[in-house]
């Protein structure tokens, strides 16, 4: 009885896989995968904007473009780690805002750079541990966990922890304010920070054992568990990495804008991050993609946003357009990476 059922399931899966696989073989000659599509799309949009939008293809604007998306890119790197591990972290904006604001506040009260940073890092790690624990051990779906944790952390930020809702960059942190403000050989440090973070995350994911474990447990958690990978600690590690990356992004952001707005927590930001990751070609079903996808996604989003800003599109309209693009990206994702009902978790929404 159960044998027939298994067979039936296997066949259904084989049929389900035949569609995309057949499509892939048809297009194999030109390596026409999502990464390529997005790259071509980016090139086309970039070219179109360069030709049609006055003031787009200038060194100044391109540097602005890079600088505006560098924070988004850093966040995308953190999100990528979690998404590759078959999760999602919606609390990243909260862990961008609150720990870095804590660093600014402590530094302004003369606690010293090291102590302040240590406190901020501890808070970021704590958020990651909380997320990871709830996802790995309490087995709450990650979307749900991180949404609630994000709201909670933002709540902490808004409930009198800080004197003002906008925490200014204090003079005591002048020694590290270059990460958001200065430039090296004409390239802003924030862009360099993105590049540095990309290299570190890239090496971690591709060259270390832990990175391989994240890929394995994202690809098939049950198989990873059977193979002896400590899946639950690995899950926690992902959220800790995401928290730390978010805090780094927060420091870059606050250094470049000389303050940290703790009201930053709202959904539109996090969905820019998801947009970067999904557009770049990291499948939400886990185990696929890497740093390069984040970079491509970041460039595409940066170009679109920059172009729309030059065209003077209103904020709401930008949200609308980005939302529709994300919806399209998600539907393509669900067609290219169909969900495997055999390994999908109960309650995986």
């Amino acid at each position: 009885m159960s044998g027939t059922e298994l067979n039936g399931g296997g066949q259904a899966e084989a049929v389900a896989k035949a569609g995309p696989a057949g499509g892939a073989s048809f297009l194999k000659g030109v390596a026409f995968d999502q990464q390529m599509i997005v790259l071509l799309l980016f090139a086309a949009i970039f070219l179109a904007f360069s030709l049609l939008l006055p003031g787009f293809f200038t060194v100044g604007n391109l540097l602005t473009l890079m600088r505006t998306v560098s924070v988004l890119g850093i966040l995308g790197l953190g999100m990528a780690v979690v998404v590759i591990g078959r999760g999602i972290d919606l609390s990243m904006i909260a862990s961008l805002a609150v720990p870095s604001a804590v660093v600014l506040m402590l530094a302004s009260k003369d606690y010293g750079i090291a102590t302040s940073l240590l406190c901020g890092v501890s808070l970021a790690v704590a958020i990651g541990v909380l997320n990871g624990f709830l996802v790995a051990y309490a087995e709450i779906p990650s979307l749900f966990t991180t949404l609630a944790v994000g709201i909670g952390i933002a709540g902490i930020g808004q409930s009198g922890l800080f004197e003002y809702e906008i925490v200014p960059w204090p003079a005591q942190l002048a020694a590290i304010s270059w990460i958001g403000q200065g430039s090296l050989l004409g390239i802003p440090y924030s862009v360099l920070a993105f590049i540095a973070a990309a290299i570190i995350v890239g090496i971690f994911m591709r060259k270390t054992r832990l990175g391989a474990f994240i890929y394995a447990s994202g690809d098939n958690p049950n198989a990873a568990r059977i193979a002896g990978i400590p899946v639950r600690p690995i899950l926690m590690l992902q959220y800790i990495i995401a928290g730390l990356v978010a805090m780094f992004a927060g420091l870059v952001l606050s250094a470049s804008s000389s303050s940290m707005d703790t009201r930053i927590f709202n959904l539109t930001w996090i969905y820019d991050v998801i947009l970067v990751v999904v557009l770049g070609g990291i499948g939400l079903s886990g185990g696929r993609g890497g740093v390069i996808n984040v970079i491509i996604g970041t460039l595409l989003i940066g170009t679109i946003v920059n172009g729309m800003t030059i065209m003077n599109v209103s904020f709401e309209m930008q949200n609308l357009i980005k939302g529709v693009v994300l919806l399209a990206a998600l539907s393509i994702d669900s067609i290219v990476n169909p969900r495997n009902e055999e390994t999908a978790q109960q309650g995986d929404i």
Binding site: I88, T268, L284, N319, G323, L326, L327, L330, S334
Partner: peptide
């Protein structure tokens, strides 16, 4: 067959 959470989150924003 898209994911309910992300899809409705995006429609929420749209």
């Amino acid at each position: 067959r898209m994911r309910a959470f992300l899809t409705t989150m995006v429609t929420l924003i749209v």
